[in-house]
Amino acid sequence: MKQLLSIKNLFVNVEDKEILKGLNFEVNAGETHVIMGPNGAGKSSLMNAIFGNPKYQKTNGQIVFNDVDITNAKPDEIAKLGVFMSFQNPVSVEGISVFNFIKTAKSKLTNSPINYFDLKDEIDKYVLQLDMREELSKRDLNVGFSGGEKKKAEILQMLCLNPKLAILDETDSGLDVDAIKVVSKGVEMFKNDQNAVLIITHSSRILEHLKVDKVHILLNGKIVKTGDASLVDFVEKNGYAGFEGEN
């Protein structure tokens, strides 16, 4: 199987504080991975570090995506390579509609103009499948969206932009039943054997509806354990305390 993402010995600082301390893992095409860990383990830092958020400084290590070293790449370059990241709290931008934003992003990613009607058909299809209100795509990007609407708009973007790797930040939504449904439905629609999904969460609830290939336990800035879906059940029963001391 084709290797998509490989992270080797990653160290990351946020405001001079070391958050990730030598992190390793790999994601292959066709797989769905989950990274679990308690609050403060470094989950958000990992996502932002992969995506080159300037607030997160990499002090050591390497990130390779699809044979390209993206350790020091800019966010848009990473996106163009086929990586997508969903946000828990995406920024809202007045004056640009969801539709126009997707159109702009898609044209940048594909480097070609987008046919209005093709995109409209595509979006309409997803809107129906995700049970979204039609007018949502006409509203300004995330402006005045409820939590559920934001989630749907992010998943809609994922489906339209069709990345090779989708990283989903589900750190906050572990308990929201509707959000879980949207995400699992979206992943189901998205997933094929050419692409991969990486879900980041601290709760096992979200995983009930998903077929997961690998589970990584992130603790104190490192992956302390990697296993199959049965690890989720272990966390469910024992919490993260059982992994203390493992390395």
Binding site: F51, K74, P75, D76, A79, M85, V91, V93, A105, K108
Partner: peptide, 13 residues
């Protein structure tokens, strides 16, 4: 900065 980062994660320079 957050708006810029969000846009850039969608592939926009």
């Amino acid at each position: 900065e957050d708006e810029l980062f969000y846009m850039m994660t969608r592939g926009i320079s």
